[in-house]
Amino acid sequence: MKRAMISVLAALSVAMAGAQDFKAMLREIDSLGDFGGQDFTATYTIVSEKPGQKPETVQVRVYRRDERDQFVFLFLKPERQKGQGYLKVDDNVWFYDPESGEFAKSTIKESVQDSEARNSDLSRMSYADDYDIEKSSEGKLGAYDVWILELVSKDSEVSWQRVRLYVRKDKPLVLKEEDFSVSGRLMRTVSFPPSYISAGGKQIPSRILIVDEINTGEKSQLTLSDVAVGKLADDTFTEAFLKRAR
């Protein structure tokens, strides 16, 4: 009898999980980070800790036009990097150094200076477009009931080949993301604690913690401030903007 009960409960749980449209959930998650026809700006303060070293702080002003998948990152601090920036035009990411006035080819996978954050963490991304759902389950994370989704990348352009997402059951908000290498090794853990900023009718996490799982003790906190959603000048997403923005 007990065994039968367990079987029924298990079947029920599978059925309930099956009833969830996880692909739609991914699309909802994506839509929360996609400002569509509006432009998005925010300042990210990234504090990085490494064992035996003084914490490093980098401040980046992010300008995004998600409609065209464009972005400009402008470094505000530290002083020695002030005015440097990244520009995404079409599928190319360029790094700009104001001291030499030169641009060099970069990638979305590149780290933001020496922090644990990558360019892709500051730009719009799409779980639904870039990943397939391999597995789903339920769990608890702190005080929150969550769906746990195992994702596998569709191509090699993304930073991580395998991703495990912990998504709140009450709202389609990601609380934690675990990023894995192709071989399945956990590379880093990204936590999005439930403190949000409401902008353009969407809730975006105001603080992010990224922990390097390979180099013990290395981690970065990203804090968002000066968040705004509206219309930016068209020449924001040009080389000329970076050249004069310092």
């Binding site: 409401s198 509206g230 000048a233």
Partner: peptide
């Protein structure tokens, strides 16, 4: 990280600063 209830702040600026 995830023990506290959620908090929501409003974005500080309504429009981006001029370029």
């Amino acid at each position: 990280l995830f023990g506290a209830p959620e908090t929501v702040d409003l974005a500080v600026a309504a429009a981006p600063e001029p370029v």
